[in-house]
Each structure stands twice: as structure tokens, then as C-alpha cells.
């Protein structure tokens, strides 16, 4: 079976700055593939290469078997792209934007109404409002409609949920599942680690390198340490104390809790609790937790940093 997206050994430099460093990945048709990494990791550069806006310095990238450098015109007909920034015409209305992008891709809204109906229905009451006056969530829905209106077979969504509230984000992912049902392959990037578990498969990317690829479950299962959620007063000195402790491997702050990684079999919950209470911290709780993608990312990023 031909892969929907194939990236082999792709690198990209901007002057002396390395944006992508020998990246390889493959996306199966009909899956939601997540590219997870912080800002500046190279996600947008990879997207731009795949949607034929940039040429890779070396390596090869194929979309539906077509080369991004050679067959760019054929690729442009078959893909939908939603750039990271809201990139529609703010001075045109919702309906005008949609009509315009439909005609630009050689189709019409009427022809493909079924394809976008579910999403468009939510913004249709505002069809005569200028796009610049929409809320973040509605802008994002409109952008998605515009990217979908010509029935693309591969959809590229570059940080679609950045700057969108939690409810709209949830809505958005539900929409993606419905789009996937129609057989569309989706490559989505996000800096939010919690969205990683919503993808079928993910690649964790940092500083232009892919540090891990797999299903979210696989990646979590490969977490090498035992993890505790620790809270206590005062919080910041506690974090510093934990980082200094010889038996603590990693410690990161996660909202109200600190995630503390220890070697399995060496330190238990009781040891840790006693150690913290002895140091004079109050209201201390220590509970064993399952690692999430962010824990894995931090761990892998640290390992990667130590390697190089």
C-alpha cells in the first residue's frame, strides 16, 4: 500500500540555522498523524515542504506518491492546507471567503456542500459577517471549511488549535474524526501535548529532529521510570529540593503538582513521602501516576540533549 505521506531524510537550513535535521516519517492513508513539539521545533518548515511551498535542501518528500519538488502542481490539486496563522481574507465575509477558495480550486460550494456541511452548518448563521470579526473558534472552523471545500485527499493542519478555547478544541477534534471517516489522511501539528493522545500515531519533534515515533500508547508504555505526582507547601522550594535529591531522576512542575521520576524498584512512595516530610514541607501528598505524552517528551528530549 502506498503511503499517503513519505518523508525520507529531509533537511532544511535557513542560513546557519538548521530547521530540519534528517527527518524521516511515513503516514498511512486515512490516519490522523500528529507532529508534536514545542515552538521552533521545525513543524511549520516540514509542513511547508510537504505542501510544496518550500524545497528541501536534501532528502525526498512524497505526498500520495508524488514528489514535492517535481510534481508540485499535481500535489497542489489534491491537498488541503490550513496554515498556522489565520490566513483568510479578513475583509471578506464568511460566505465570500468560502466561495473564493472553492473557485480557486476549481469547484463550487454547492457542489461540495455535503463535504463541509457538518462544519459549515455551525458558522452558516454568520455567513454575512466579515471573517475578521469572527471569534477564534469560528475563524478556525471557517479555515477548515476552506481547506476542505475541494475534497482533498490529504489534509495538512499546522497548529490548528493554537489560540482556541478548550471547548472549541474538543469540537475541532471531533470534526477531524468525522473527516477521517471519509478516508482523508490528516497530518496535524500541535504544541499541546494533551492533544497527542487524540492522534492515531505521533512523532515527537524537537530542534528539527524526530525523537520518537509511534502510537501514543506505545510511547507512553516505553516510559522507563516510575512516576509520582507530588504536591506540598511551599511549592517552589519543594521543586528545588526534589531536583537536588539524589534518588530523583527528573522533576518537572505540572500545574499544581510536581511530576517526579524515580528508578523503578529503588525508591517507593513511602520513601519519597518520608524524605519530603523530613525536610519540613507541609501538606505533602505523593501518589503514583501514569506518565502522559508530556512526561515522555520531557524524558526523550533530555536523553536527546545528553546524547548530543
Amino acid at each position: 500500500m502506498i503511503e499517503a505521506i513519505k518523508v525520507e531524510n529531509v533537511s532544511k537550513h535557513y542560513g546557519a540555522c538548521v530547521a530540519l535535521d534528517h527527518i524521516s516519517l511515513g503516514v498511512q492513508p486515512g490516519e490522523i498523524y500528529g507532529l508534536i513539539g514545542p515552538d521552533g521545533a521545525g513543524k511549520t518548515t516540514l509542513f511547508r515542504i510537504l505542501v510544496t511551498l518550500l524545497l528541501p535542501d536534501n532528502g525526498k518528500a512524497l505526498v500520495e506518491g508524488l514528489d514535492v519538488a517535481r510534481d508540485y502542481m499535481a500535489i497542489r490539486r489534491n491537498i488541503g492546507y490550513m496554515p498556522g496563522r489565520f490566513s483568510l481574507y479578513q475583509d471578506l465575509t464568511v460566505a465570500e471567503n468560502l466561495d473564493f477558495f472553492a473557485t480557486m480550486f476549481g469547484t463550487s460550494v454547492a457542489e461540495n456542500y455535503q463535504n463541509i456541511k457538518e462544519i459549515y452548518a455551525q458558522i452558516e448563521p454568520f455567513r454575512d459577517r466579515r471573517a475578521g470579526q469572527l471569534s477564534g473558534g469560528m475563524k478556525q472552523k471557517l479555515a477548515l471549511c476552506c481547506a476542505l471545500v475541494h475534497r482533498p485527499s490529504v489534509l495538512f493542519l499546522d497548529e490548528p488549535t493554537t489560540g482556541v478555547d478548550a471547548v472549541s478544541r474538543k469540537d475541532f477534534w471531533n470534526m477531524l474524526y468525522r473527516i477521517r471517516k471519509a478516508g482523508v489522511t490528516i497530518l496535524v501539528s500541535t504544541p499541546y501535548m494533551d492533544e497527542a493522545s487524540l492522534c492515531d500515531r505521533i512523532s515527537l519533534i524537537q530542534k528539527g529532529r524526530i525523537i520518537k515515533t509511534g502510537t501514543p500508547e506505545e510511547i507512553v508504555a516505553q516510559y522507563p521510570h516510575r512516576l509520582f505526582g507530588v504536591s506540598g507547601n511551599p511549592a517552589y522550594p519543594l521543586l528545588k529540593f526534589l531536583r537536588r535529591s539524589p534518588n530523583v531522576l527528573r522533576c518537572f512542575s505540572f500545574g499544581s503538582e510536581h511530576h517526579v521520576a524515580v528508578s523503578p524498584g529503588q525508591t517507593g512512595r513511602e520513601d519519597l513521602l518520608k524524605q519530603i516530610q523530613d525536610a519540613g514541607f507541609r501538606n505533602v501528598t505523593v501518589r503514583e501516576i501514569n506518565p502522559n505524552i508530556e512526561d515522555c517528551f520531557m524524558e526523550l528530549a533530555k536523553e536527546e540533549g545528553q546524547k548530543s
Binding site: L53, R76, I79, Y81, F101, M104, F105, C146
Partner: peptide, 8 residues
Amino acid sequence: ELLLVSPM
């Protein structure tokens, strides 16, 4: 970006 990605 979107105009360039379009087939036009």
C-alpha cells in the same frame, strides 16, 4: 501561502 498552494 494559500494562493500558492492552490492550483492557480
